[in-house]
Design a protein around this nucleic acid. Structure first.
Lengths: 213, 213
DNA sequence: GTTGACATACATACCGGTTGGTATATTATT
DNA sequence: AATAATATACCAACCGGTATGTATGTCAAC
């Protein structure tokens, strides 16, 4: 039950080995706490207890809990989604092959403990999007970047004649993002990686329909 | 911002016009509060204030907040998911046509205020599945019923020769559920029904691949 | 000697939950 | 049929604990 204290999971693996300053420590601990408890139930006391940082330090760097939440999205989550889902996509010549490769790579990358808490972006969005416009706008910005990177690569592939010409890149991109997020969600609730694999297989079937053969 | 007090939205529309007893009033108000705030941040005081029921009455009918949450899942959410997604599916001869019809019907049924809070099942699952096994098991039971009703209808269609023979009903069902949930989620964050339509279109494309033509 | 980076101690409000009690309906007894 | 016993449904006040946030103090660096 306290597995979440372990740093060796996909979502929490530090981005670099550099020593974190006080602000960075707070940010990382807040990110973990928010991922585990949600934003509203995230306890500043817990964050402080786990970092050893005091309340004075926290309120020196962040004016209030909400702004701390915003900073976690802007500086932690955005970076991780970009590194995991946006950037790898730009390396592929054929986006269909690229996405299929990404899906298969994800299937191998995720362990059972990784899906226990699911995607931090989804979790925060589910909770906070209807409650706080500041959260919603920041979160949707990340989703849009993800969506657009997929849509753009499909547009390029369409111009190159790699795809069946009658498919709308916006539709394809929206469906891919939705299915991936939905698959992570379902796997998290069931605590079963097989759901991830099944949805991946279904998505790959769909992508084969789109490719020009 | 207080739209959520209005009963005239899809998720909260009463199931029948019968007068609710005290227990039913608490259950419905708790369901709304949990859908809006999440379970942990759901305030018993808010629930009581909106019902006019007192705390003594609440704790007469439910031993604690957690059991109230369980009852909301078992008696409110399960019923609504069944009525919206499971039961309608059983009327169709050809499940591919049936699901396409359901997707199109959903697109017309949902309004912008309906997707503002998204699917109550998804929201609760995102928050509580990692935190409380009682929640998780109750929620996954509902998901399984949904998934199985889709998988079963595809199995029947497979036997009738309505489908391409090389498709696994488990894969198809998992993908459909994931895409629908992911689409609701994306539309909620973006507050944009077009996302729902786009994902619906993508899903229908996928289903055409499966149908025997 | 002023500013930035913290530490300590405290204030205020709200949370879930408990307590002790009342009014009413049901059941058991004679 | 009348009454005693018990269970149900509910109420109002309160409790300990925890939440975020604040006020003030310290101390090093430039």
């Amino acid at each position: 039950m306290n597995d979440f204290l372990n740093d060796n999971v996909y979502w929490w693996r530090p981005l670099d080995d550099a020593e974190l300053d006080t602000r960075g420590k707070i940010l990382l601990a807040a990110y973990k706490e928010m991922h585990y408890q949600g934003f509203q139930s995230a306890s500043l006391s817990n964050i402080l207890a786990r970092t050893g940082v005091t309340k004075g330090a926290l309120y020196h760097h962040f004016p209030n809990k909400t702004e701390l939440g915003y900073a976690v999205i802007d500086e932690v989550i955005a970076q991780r989604i970009h590194l995991s889902f946006v950037k790898p996509l730009q390396n592929f010549e054929n986006p269909v092959d690229g996405i299929i490769e990404l899906i298969q790579a994800s299937g191998e990358a995720f362990s059972l403990t990784d899906i226990e808490l699911g995607c931090p972006l989804t979790a925060l969005a589910q909770e906070m999007a209807p409650l706080d416009e500041g959260f919603r706008l920041r979160l949707i910005k990340i989703y849009n970047q993800w969506h657009q990177s997929i849509a753009d690569s499909f547009r390029r592939a369409l111009e190159k004649g790699q795809l069946q010409p009658d498919f709308d890149p916006e539709i394809v991109a929206a469906t891919i993002v939705a299915t991936l997020e939905g698959a992570m969600h379902a796997a998290k609730v069931a605590q079963d990686l097989n759901i991830l694999y099944r949805c991946g297989a279904g998505l790959i079937q769909y992508l084969h329909l789109i490719r020009k053969n």
